[in-house]
Structures are given as C-alpha cells and as structure tokens.
Design a protein around this nucleic acid. Structure first.
Lengths: 344, 344
DNA sequence: TCGCATCAGTGAAGCGGTTAAGTTCCGTGC
DNA sequence: GCACGGAACTTAACCGCTTCACTGATGCGA
C-alpha cells in the first residue's frame, strides 16, 4: 500500500554520472549535449532502472504521451467499438489512450474533459453528448481537441471527423421507400438535452420530400430500455400513449437500438425482414450475424479511428494538416432486415 | 494550442485572503483551521474559480481520485461491457475511471499498469492477460490492485473477483453431454503466451470424467478471426490441418467467439441449434437476440462490476473488508443454441 | 592574434501543491 | 502567578522534472 521501493530519480542518475540534473534531463531527451555524454547518461539511466516520472514531468511542463478519449455514452456498442479502435490506433503510435465514459451526461462530459485537460493529456478525442456546450472552448484552448461525429460549435478544435448524417438518412429513407414502406418510425439516441442536433430536421426534410409518414422517438442505447421503447412502437402505443398505426419499418440511429427492436419483434412474433423492416446505423460486427442480418450503414469504423487519431497526433506534434475536417460518407450494407412489401 | 488562460493557483487564493498557501491548502481540505477561516477561504476560492491542479497535488503526494481500469483485450465484447460497467460504478462514487486496453499483449499490459501507477491512480482494476507476470508484484506494492477473472499470483492484491471457471466448464459440458453430444470443440481465447491458465486442464478433466472427445483450440476475439477459426473447425480441417471429424457442439470461452461460430455456421448452411450446438461464456446482451438465442453462462456482469469497484474503493479508503476474494458462480442461460441430438 | 559565434554543461528558479516543524497567542488547572 | 498545552497559522522544505540564463571552452574567419 505504501510506496516502499522508491523509484530512481533524475538526481540519482546525475550523481552517478557526475553531471547536473539539467544535463541528464537534456541528454535523455537527446537535446543539446554531446553524443558521448548522451550515451553515458543513457547507460547509467538504464543501469539504475531510471524511468522519468510522468507526473513530475507534466508539472514541469513536458509531454505526457497520454491522449484522452472521451465517449459520450459507452453503453452504446458502437462507441465501445470506436473507443477500442481508437485506443489501438494510438497505442500503435506509442501513446497511452485513456478512455472515459460520460454516461450520456453533458455536465459529466465537461467535467471529465476538464479532468483530462488537467491531467495534461497531450490531446483529446471526443465523441460528444453535447457538442454545443460552452465549456468546450476553454478546453480546446488548453489542449488540442478532435471531435468525432459532431462539431464542437463553440470551440476551435484541432480537427473533426464528421458523419454525413444527411446522406445517411437520405440513403436509408430512400431505400425504405424503394422497398415500399410509407409508415416509418425513427429511433434516435436520447441526449438528456441534446440541443441543436439536426438529425430530426434531416429526417423530416427527407420524409417530406419522399412523402413518408415518419415518427421520431428518442431511445436509450441500453438493450433493455431500447427493447421497451420498441415494444411500445410495435404495440402502436408509442409516444404520447395515443393508439396509432404500427410502422412497417423502423430506422434506428444506432445498431444497439436496432437490437432492441429485434428483441421486441421476437416477443411480438414478428419476423424481422418480412413483417417488419429494421435498419441500423453503425454496422457493428455483430449485426451481420443476426437473423436476418441487419441492414445498416457502414461508416468505416476503422478509418474513422485512424483519421481521428491521425488528426490528434498531427495537432499534438504541431504539424499542420491539409484537411482538418473529415466527412465520412455512409455505405448502405444491404442485408436481410429490410425487405420489400406491397404498396400500402 | 498554447495555454492562454492561466488557471488560478493556490497562491492567488492565499493572497486574496491574506493567508499562507498552507493555510488555504488545509482549509480547502477541511483540516486544522477554524470554521470561520474555512468559510472565508472557500468563498474566495469559489469567487476566483479556483480548482486544485491534480497534477501538482499528485506530485506532492495527494489523492488523485482517478482509478485505472485495465482491460487485457478490449476487442472482446464482454470486456467492453465490463469496462463500461465498472466505469459507471466508479463514476457514481465520484472517481474518474481511466479505461486502458492492453490489446492482448502481456508486455503492454504491464507497461500500461506502470504508467497508471506513475499517474498516481488511487487504485487499479485489472482483467489481466497474463496474471502470473512478475511485474504485478511491484505494481501492487505501490497501488491497491483488484484483479478480475484471475489471481495475480505473484502479487499482494487488494482483492479479486474470480469466476468459478471449473464450475462453468462442468456445467456446460454436463449440459452438452446431457443433450447427447460426444464430440465437442472448445474455443479458448488466445493469450499470446497465456502461461498457466488452468482452463484447458479443467476442460480435459471434465471431458475425461464425462467420456467426451474434446479438442481445445485457441481463438482470437475479433469476429473476423474467430470466424476463420470456426470455419476450419466446421470444415473438419482444424488444428494441425489433419482432416478429422466435425464436432457436434462448439463450446466458446467468450460470446465474441461464439458469434464467429454463428457466422461460420451460416456460411456452411448449418443451422445452429439443430445441426450444430453452440454455447458461449459471457451472456453478452446481444446474445439473447441472436437466432437462435445463444445458450451461454451468465456470471452477473453488473455484480462483478459492483464488487470489483467496491473492493477497490475500500482499499483506497484504507478500509478492511471481510472477504477480499469474491468467487462468482455461473448460471446457465439455457436458450436455443444448444439442443439435443440422438446418441452418436 | 583577436573577437565572436557555438557548443557543452551548470545553477537555480519555477510548476502548484502538501506537510513536517515551528511560532504565536490564549485559556487553564494548580 | 505560571508553566503547559492546544488551536490557528506560518515557514520552508520538498515532490521530480524542465528550462531559462549564464559560464567556460573551443573553433574559426579575418
């Protein structure tokens, strides 16, 4: 529990080599000293098992080689995938990825971001719950921030990887319309107070254009809750409790939510694909092994992780980058969960 | 990019109140000072928007209220769930959970653990790749460590949450035998050099006892790779490449792997449940919405997260705890993926 | 031969807190 | 009336590293 084995400090290496701590500090970072002393210092450091204390280093203003990765809601399976992928990407570049979960709470999200900033992470990747929060500005001023999925409107970020949601929505609704669907329910993730996310707007625009009857409902990512919401939808008892027509297709803004619909459909003995079409949004690996495999959007998770990491690393290293705003286009992974139906 | 807005420091609060920094430091932690000054200091601190710098605090030897959560392999869907659950659990207790991923690499795992220790996390939760590594000892001496899923044999940990693997294996193999299966393939996660994990041993013991023909194969968590391995198994071309009999049941040591088997079975036009029985190990939320729903073991993930967090927090706060070794018993979630078959 | 960069290395001042060891001041018990 | 003890603060020494300003040597062109 206590800290028995004191670690070797810079000073000890200095004493061992007969140099000043400053010289050693420089030497170990390959600056400013002769090749010869550098070798000598490195050897001594190795012999003594010296490893720089990241905390002291951070306090004195150095790099930490830590990068914060902040998920808005780690309950979402796709976010889990994304965070893991980003983590690996960064690890490959010898940086430590600290993954944090805001649990869908905008205040917590900001608090965590601040904590990360205070920990002197070199950079911060965030898939935000509340992209328009004021707080981002100050954070982005202190550390390079790359946002994923949404622009941090109030902040000057180091880059962003965005999803062309409008394209995604158009693609899916087009597809569903082409299959003959007219009455569609759209399930979007609940942001406790998701402010001006324009997804709803896009949905309504597309719906108007395509003459579709859509209903947009918020829905949590967690399977149980998603199932509950889906149950109500398939019951015709959605939204306000008013009894209304059951949709022929459900378009879910995350595969997690789609899984809830599968569960509810099974309970109601509805065959997904035949009796009810379902479309997801993320192409989670599991989606392809469902029965029927989930028709969903593929945004290229691996690339997203790669691009996001690249942007962050570039910013950290002070490199300029040509395009700091990446817009990902979706590809429809057409599988078996959305099928045609006679008109009506 | 630069750090423009300097944060208010302890000194500034001291000056504002006409006290010494020491007094302020004490006051803010409610020690050693009169009620009156404490109030005065708190007010000044609030007015100035003072927030202690965690790095400086850590350097000086204080608490950080950060807890490290280290996953051996965040590719595994169940680990994703577990880490997320632990994160929430800790968050609820006002501690920051830093989730890291060792990517299945034992060396990296230790490096990350050290990094975390050096970051002065108050505690460390770890679901280890290599529980018998020497390195754990020194880490556990510097920070309270709670291990999940395996004992850190060489280290004096603050607690452990273990799974009764033997019971799990017995349960599943018993179950499969009862259903009439005799030829069973067991797919275990690859540890790059998983040393003395006794799972294989348990499997063989149980197999001998039950007169089963089992083959144990290592398998990665990632869906693509798991599918590839499963493909070979269903091909009868497993292991060494020698042609041999196809098993009637596959027992997977993680649901992730089971998903790979589902995928491979679909490719081979085998109906899971009828033509091939599959059993998983984790009860991932998605498992219940597969077709057929995956028969798997339920270890009570929520409780695991809760217990692990509890042990860690207790250790951090220096509380003694009655049982620092929790053994979780599995419950068989019998669903549709493992069904009976005639003898043979 | 001199003046002036340049290079290798040193000293010391932080970074922003914590904490052990005083220093005052004051109420008490005897 | 006085030594004593504790409350309330202050002083100053770190924690371990980075970095700025500076000192000597050395090289070198003029």
């Amino acid at each position: 529990m206590a800290r028995p084995s004191k670690r070797t400090t810079l000073r000890e290496v200095a004493e061992a080599t007969g140099l000043s701590t400053a010289a050693v500090s420089y030497a170990l970072r390959g600056k400013h000293v002769s090749k010869e002393t550098e070798q000598r210092v490195r050897k001594a450091a190795a012999d003594l098992g010296y490893e720089a204390d990241p905390i002291a280093r951070a306090l004195a203003g150095g790099r930490t080689s830590m990068v914060g990765v902040l998920s808005g809601d780690l309950q979402d399976l796709w976010q889990q995938q994304l965070m893991a992928a980003i983590g690996r990407e960064l690890l490959a570049g010898d940086r430590y990825a600290l993954i944090l979960d805001a649990g869908g709470d905008p205040e917590r999200e900001l608090a965590l971001a601040k904590q990360l900033r205070d920990q002197r992470v070199d950079g911060l990747l965030v898939s935000p719950v509340d992209p328009s929060a004021e707080g981002w500005a100050k954070i982005a001023d202190a550390v390079p921030v790359v946002s994923i999925g949404d622009s941090l409107r109030r902040a000057r970020t180091a880059g962003e990887v965005l999803f062309d949601n409008r394209a995604g929505i158009d693609t899916v609704l087009d597809h569903l319309r082409g299959l003959g669907h007219r009455r569609i329910t759209v399930l979007t993730p609940t942001g406790p107070s998701t402010p001006d996310r324009p997804a709803d707007v896009y949905v309504r625009e597309a719906a108007d254009r395509l003459h579709l009857t859509v209903e947009v409902l918020p829905c949590a990512q967690e399977l149980g809750e998603a199932t509950a919401v889906a149950r109500r939808v398939l019951d015709g008892a959605g939204g306000g409790g008013a009894r209304r027509a059951v949709p022929t297709a459900v378009f879910c803004f995350s595969d997690s939510i789609a899984y809830g619909v599968y569960a509810a459909a099974a309970e109601a003995s509805l065959a997904v694909g035949r009796d009810l079409s379902v479309v997801g949004f993320d192409d989670h690996p599991v989606s392809r092994i469902l029965t029927p495999p989930l028709t969903t959007l593929d945004w290229g998770l691996a690339d997203i992780a790669k691009e996001a990491a690249r942007l962050a690393v570039a910013a950290i290293e002070g490199r300029r980058v040509r395009r700091k705003r990446i817009l990902c286009a979706p590809r429809l992974s057409e599988r078996g969960s959305a099928l045609g139906r006679g008109p009506g």
